[in-house]
């Protein structure tokens, strides 16, 4: 598929999802149903990837859509693309459950970042993000395997610094230092 065609499709989908979220914010149950049909398999994959337990992932998915229903009115002002907003809610919910399972104090709700108003949401941002997304895989491939693997483990499996340290047999501070550098390299590469 041509890149331009792909972008057009992405834009259409983005607008559709935005409309469904706005209508959901107004209490439109039909729109909420359509939003569920369009996105639940993806969000289920996100929570399942982190929790690795079907019954728990199914419960988390329910929590996620209850939050989406209740939080839809705050979506318009946060400046995130609709899919990122939905994925962020799903990921945060799954990580909360994962950390609670390990009976550790819950980490900071990164979701807070999606509830505060954006200062300057620009139309160009969407295009830039579409390009960045395509670059993400290429840039991850440029990192060393261990580093790319760690970024994926943290994002897709909810690994903590303690988990990474245990896995690598290194102190937490060492692991933290190289992951931070990997993330900065990733950003430099993606934003080129």
């Amino acid at each position: 598929m041509q890149a331009r065609e792909f972008d057009a499709l992405t834009d259409t989908r983005r607008t559709e999802l935005e409309q469904l979220i706005s209508r959901t914010a107004l209490g439109d149950r039909e729109a909420f149903d359509a939003l569920y049909a369009a996105t639940s398999a993806k969000l289920h994959a996100v929570v399942l990837s982190i929790l690795k337990d079907r019954p728990e992932a199914e419960e988390a998915l329910q929590d996620v859509y209850v939050r989406i229903w209740k939080g839809a009115s705050r979506y318009a002002s946060n400046g995130l693309s609709p899919m990122t907003w939905l994925i962020t809610i799903a990921r945060n919910r799954a990580i909360d459950r994962l950390r609670a399972r390990a009976s550790r104090p819950a980490t900071a709700p990164a979701e807070a970042a999606s509830t505060i108003a954006a200062t300057a949401p620009t139309p160009e941002a969407a295009t830039i993000h579409a390009q960045e997304r395509r670059l993400l895989d290429e840039c991850l491939a440029q990192l060393a395997d261990t580093q790319a693997g760690a970024v994926r483990a943290v994002y897709l499996e909810g690994a903590s610094y303690a988990d990474l340290a245990q896995q690598e047999g290194k102190p937490i501070n060492t692991v933290r230092s190289w992951l931070r550098r990997s993330l900065l390299r990733l950003k430099d590469c993606v934003s080129q």
Partner: peptide, 8 residues
């Protein structure tokens, strides 16, 4: 959040 959502 936008950047990493591509992974999901």
């Amino acid at each position: 959040q936008e950047r990493l959502a591509g992974l999901a």
